[in-house]
Design a protein around this nucleic acid. Structure first.
Length: 476
RNA sequence: CGGGACGUCGUAUACCGGUAGUACGCCUGGUUUGGGACCAGGUAGAUAGGGUUCGAUUCCCUACGUCCCGACCA
């Protein structure tokens, strides 16, 4: 009977079908009326707000200020940097008519804000004393993707983009590294998603960058997800936008720049990585509701007692929801909150109040335990942190179990056919070899891990000498 | 953007060239509440536009949207 009510497909039987349904059913998001557009519903947006809170704090601590630049970019501005426009032109949305009249100059809906920001940077930066200039913005960008997927790839997505200008390459390079380390830390400690930090290959790097750092995590079914990158822009943009400054010694120099971004795609990764057949499983640190309290057949003073418990938890910063709906049965409440991935559920009825201990259920393990009434806050906090740790430990184990090494092309292909996952393999760093591997196996270079040891070997495909093992995978 | 599948109340589905049904949801009232409650009454639907036809939700075309497979990407 319970099965008949279920209309969520099993995650274990098909990730993409499960994923598409759970995003809608858990009310994280809905589709917009135009293709590829998404409505972030309150429950989903709340997750993003939690990410923002944490990341914004870290960004500001680093000395980066928030600002906001325009959505519309004159075409000529975007065209200034040759490789940048070349990289983005296939996916631009362009405004050609305004107020009913054809525009003299087309306006591009930003796919990213390098050009419009650096146009201003050129005016703002005159002296070495103006550096570093470090600005971040939380905004939306538009990229005309051919094939869309809710949260993972859409026409419009939300992100933050940080853009810094420095006097020296040492400084900008350190900034590039700082950003990816910050992302990795948030990813690990909040999303409970481990991954590899590494360098993008020349062909995979950002259009207009000298180098790109990425954080690559692995989804169930063995596909790679990249949801943040940090770029060393060198002087590419400062030269084309004339971001020049007078140095201490009086000479004119071009600024060294970085840009780095983290998008709502990460929410999709979160859903896929931790969810199960019962629905979402949210890591406590990013759960809009960390604890749901369900009173069972309580009224009057006894219900007040439960409300007091909720208040107590709230006072300690726990995000609590008290579900006092009278028209829903216990079972339907439990199922609903499980579907929505709430980490801890507290059941409080006459039984609990008499015994002086409430029943707590963990979403990740389904374990039930008993928490003494006089110890609710620390008991709950203990469960939340245990769950956060457990999700990370499971994800770590998954990543480790699905990172393989291949020393021959046959082995490489065999892994892709059977389990997928990440493959550590030698590559000659020749772009044509990379393209051939992609053509023949669908796998792309994901990154060269930042801590990859030097190791002499031969390219898994062409046999030429190689110094490092790169990580390959099939990307989303 | 190429190939394929699909589009019926909010959701999941059924039937049909001639009155569009069921379940869940939702609303009202009552009884209920320890793992998806029950009774009664009610609400709500053929994506849009053309064509064929006496008659189209059904057949055809186009657009739009979703999913899957490719090429492109956070």
């Amino acid at each position: 009977m319970a099965q008949q009510k279920r209309d969520l497909p099993l995650k274990s039987e098909g990730l993409s079908e499960w994923y598409n349904k759970i995003v809608l059913q858990a009310e994280l998001a809905d589709y917009g009326p135009a293709r590829g557009t998404i409505i972030y519903r309150p429950y989903g947006y709340a997750i993003w707000e939690l990410v923002q809170q944490e990341m914004d704090k870290r960004i500001k601590e680093k000395g980066v200020s928030n600002a906001y630049f325009p959505l519309l970019i004159p075409e000529s501005l975007l065209k200034k940097e040759a490789s940048h426009i070349e990289g983005f032109s296939p996916e631009l949305a362009v405004v050609t008519i305004g107020g009913g009249e054809e525009l003299e100059e087309k306006l591009i809906v930003r796919p990213t804000s390098e050009t419009i920001m650096y146009d201003a940077y050129a005016r703002w930066i005159q002296s070495w004393r103006d550096l570093p200039l470090m600005i971040n913005q939380w905004n939306n960008v538009v990229r005309w993707e051919k094939r869309t997927n809710i949260f993972l790839r859409g026409l419009e997505f939300l992100w933050q983009e940080g853009h810094t200008a420095h006097a020296t390459h040492e400084e900008s390079s350190a900034m590039q590294r700082w950003a990816i380390d910050m992302y990795a830390s948030v990813y690990r400690d909040y999303f409970a998603l481990p991954g590899y930090i590494g360098w993008k290959s020349q062909s995979e790097k950002f259009a207009g960058a000298d180098s790109s750092l990425t954080y690559e995590s692995l989804m169930p079914e063995g596909k790679a997800l990249q949801s943040c990158t940090s770029h060393d822009l060198g002087q590419n943009f400062s030269k084309t936008f004339n971001i020049a400054f007078q140095s201490e010694s009086g000479g004119s120099e071009f600024a060294w720049q970085t840009s780095w971004g983290f998008s709502t795609r990460a929410i999709g990764g979160l859903v896929m990585a931790h969810g199960d057949d019962g629905g979402l499983v949210l890591p406590p640190k990013l759960a809009p509701i960390q604890v749901v309290i369900i009173p069972i057949r309580l009224e009057g003073d006894k219900l007040l007692q439960v409300e007091k418990i909720a208040q107590e938890l709230k006072a300690q910063g726990v995000r609590v929801k008290l579900d006092t709906r009278e028209n829903a049965s216990l079972g339907s409440k439990i199922n609903e909150w499980e579907l929505k991935g709430v980490p801890v559920r507290l059941e409080i009825g006459g039984k609990e109040l008499d015994a002086g201990a409430i029943t707590a259920a963990r979403r990740d393990t389904s374990e039930k335990s008993s928490i003494p009434l006089n110890n609710v806050v620390s008991g709950v906090q203990g469960l939340l942190s245990a769950m956060q740790e457990n999700l990370l430990a499971k994800a770590d184990a998954f990543l480790a179990a699905n990172t393989f090494s291949a020393d021959s092309y046959d082995e490489f292909k065999k892994i892709l056919e059977s389990s997928r996952g990440f493959i550590r393999a030698h590559w000659c760093e020749d772009a044509s070899c990379e393209a051939a591997i992609k053509e023949e196996t669908k796998a792309t270079t994901r990154c060269l891990p930042i801590d990859a040891p030097e190791e002499s070997g031969v390219c898994v495909r062409c046999g030429k000498a190689s110094k490092h093992r790169w990580i390959f995978g099939i990307a989303y």
